[in-house]
């Protein structure tokens, strides 16, 4: 049965199950405002995070290289980043409302990873054997995680105008919007550093810090989308709901940059498409 469900990766299956448990506990906990359930969800998320840490570390050792090469491997790492940033937000701002969303997105990512797993370790090509590889990928994935949370908070600010949500002390629309803004700012900062790390790395590897590769272009488009968000919120009449919409739409750009590359006609020559 386990074999049938999780194939060669029962450890990844266990992480997915813990995330599923976190989702099942925290979602009703948030909707019905049951403190115990919400707490249980948070602890399950923390447990999933710890187990995922171990899975990634073990894979790192077994493969003899950082496990960030393939789509499968990033689908293990993204839930790790989402859980880490979510737990930090819960600790800092008591935003337990984020837990079901973090667990939910992790379940989706891990389920896809288990459905289309890597059955063997893909070798690291020379271009990726660099000290810049890990900082570049980690910075980007932390950014993607924070921007996911900002998108979720923005969406909540749009759909839950004046209601309390879960155990977080969110009475006004502006509280959610403020948290969404802070998450976006942190994510955008990480996005900026990830972009620069990539540029400097490309300079060392190929001699060009920017080569208008489709993935680079979408990374730039994503960055510009968040820049637009930062500026529209300064405009009269745009600081409220419209700015939140900008955050939601910008996160769609993140998703496309991460997963949508293979849909592009220009992706053929790209050096960044997961294969």
């Amino acid at each position: 049965m386990i074999e049938e469900l999780f194939g060669a990766h029962p450890d990844v299956g266990a992480v997915a199950v813990l995330h599923g448990g976190a989702l099942l506990a925290s979602a009703p906990g948030a909707v019905l405002r049951k403190r115990t359930l919400a707490r249980a969800g948070m602890w399950l998320l923390a447990a999933a995070f710890l187990l995922n840490t171990w899975v990634i570390a073990a894979r790192w050792v077994d493969a003899g290289r950082p496990p960030f090469k393939t789509l499968f491997e990033t689908l293990l790492f993204y839930p790790w980043c989402v859980a880490a940033v979510t737990l930090a937000f819960v600790a800092l701002h008591r935003l337990q409302v984020l837990v079901p969303f973090a667990a939910g997105v992790s379940v989706i990512g891990l389920a896809y990873a288990l459905w289309r797993p890597d059955v063997e370790f893909v070798k690291l090509p020379p271009a990726l054997q660099s000290g810049w590889f890990v900082p570049h990928v980690v910075t980007y994935f932390v950014a993607y995680a924070a921007l996911f949370l900002s998108g979720v908070l923005a969406l909540l600010a749009l759909v839950l105008p004046r209601s309390r949500c879960g155990t977080a002390p969110l009475d006004r629309e502006s509280a959610l919007a403020t948290h969404a803004h802070h998450a976006a700012v942190f994510g955008l900062g990480a996005l900026t550093f990830g972009l620069f790390l990539g540029g400097v790395w490309a300079k060392y590897a190929w001699g060009d810090w920017w080569s208008w590769d489709p993935k680079e272009n979408w990374a730039l488009a994503t960055w510009l989308a968040y820049m637009i968000y930062l500026h529209v919120r300064l405009m009269d009449g745009w600081s409220g709901r419209r700015a939140m919409w900008a955050l939601v739409v910008s996160f769609a750009a993140v998703v496309f940059t991460y997963l949508g590359m293979s849909l592009l006609p220009t992706a053929e020559g790209s050096l960044h498409v997961y294969r």
């Binding site: 208008w212 272009n217 979408w218 989308a225 006609p265 220009t266």
Partner: peptide
Amino acid sequence: LAMTVLGTVVL
């Protein structure tokens, strides 16, 4: 942004 995206949609 529109131009950057256009440059990834058009070959």
